[in-house]
Simulated scan of single mutants.
Amino acid sequence: MSTPLADTTNPDLGLLYAVNGLARRSPAWLDHAVSWIGEYGILLGLALLGLTGWLRARRRPDAPVAVAGLLWAPLAVAIAEVANLPISAIVDRPRPFVDHAGLDVLVEGKEGTYSFVSDHSTMSMGIAVALFLVNRRLGWIAGGLALLQGFCRMYMGVHYPTDVIGGFALATAVVLLLAPIAMAVLVPFCHAVGRTALAPLIRAPQGGGRRSGGRRRGGGPRGSVRADEQPPESDLAA
């Protein structure tokens, strides 16, 4: 079947056809790989980044604040997804392949669901922004994965570019606007948990460094850096 010409006067549709056209010209194995990455792989990668951030946050001087920031990430995503329910119903935008022929749709089961905003893009950028507030290095990596997520959703033919941008904007707004309120609750909560038997979830147990390696003038064991000398990384620290 011949592919109809895209409406080049519409940047949103034109970019979708351009990106999705790559799928039509790519080998089947690459399409399958992009589909898996865009549907599951990036979210799994973001989860691993979150786990890495938690392991690092537990070792920081401001551990309760850093862990609270990481806890805000999944909560912010959940709030953004709930906020998207009325937004998607009001906009009532069908998937692009419903109204436009010639798209190469790489994933099934999307018929009858809303296109705006992209849930996957919302989740990815929500994790990225929240993670960036706690650990900038991991946040930049997560941000790159979020951008890749948006590309994959267009490549798969299931979202317009504006669906992706809308998801990014919604997630960023929720994370940043509600962060002060969330942290006002989560930081005391993490401090409280740190005084219970669940304290290792908040702060990494201190090893017996004083008994190994001897003592040095002016501090602890050789090669160690005192916790109170480590600069905090979190932008959420009060």
Rank of each mutant, 00 (worst) to 15 (best):
N84A: 10
V91F: 01
A57C: 08
C152M: 05
G102A: 06
A78G: 11
P188I: 02
P221G: 15
S234P: 01
A76L: 00
G220C: 15
I141H: 05
S88Y: 01
R93S: 02
L177T: 15
L170M: 12
G139D: 00
Q149T: 13
V98G: 06
G166F: 07
L145A: 04
L15M: 14
R222Y: 15
R195Y: 11
G167H: 03
R153H: 09
G167C: 07
G166I: 03
F97C: 00
P232A: 14
A128T: 01
V174C: 09
A33S: 12
I202N: 10
M1N: 11
G207T: 15
R203W: 14
I79K: 03
L201P: 13
R153V: 06
E81T: 12
H120V: 01
V82N: 01
L70C: 06
A57E: 12
W36M: 12
P11E: 13
S35Y: 08
L131A: 06
A130Q: 00
Y17P: 11
G150K: 05
P221V: 13
T113C: 04
D7K: 00
S118L: 00
V117G: 11
P188M: 02
D12N: 09
I141N: 02
V193G: 13
H159P: 00
L13I: 05
G41E: 09
S124K: 09
V134Y: 06
R58L: 04
R58D: 07
L170N: 14
R195T: 10
E111C: 01
R222I: 13
V67N: 01
V105I: 02
I181D: 14
W29Q: 08
S26I: 10
D31G: 06
F189R: 08
A80Y: 03
W36P: 12
T8F: 09
A89V: 10
S121F: 07
L48I: 07
M123W: 04
P221S: 15
V82I: 04
P64I: 03
T113I: 03
S224W: 07
R93H: 05
V19T: 10
I90M: 04
G218R: 04
A171H: 05
G208R: 12
D99N: 04
L44N: 12
L103H: 00
A89D: 13
L71T: 08
W54K: 07
A146F: 08
I37G: 14
V187A: 07
T196G: 13
A89Y: 10
C152Q: 04
E39S: 14
F189L: 10
D92G: 11
M154I: 00
A28V: 15
R59W: 14
V164T: 10
G150E: 07
H120M: 04
S88Q: 01
D235N: 14
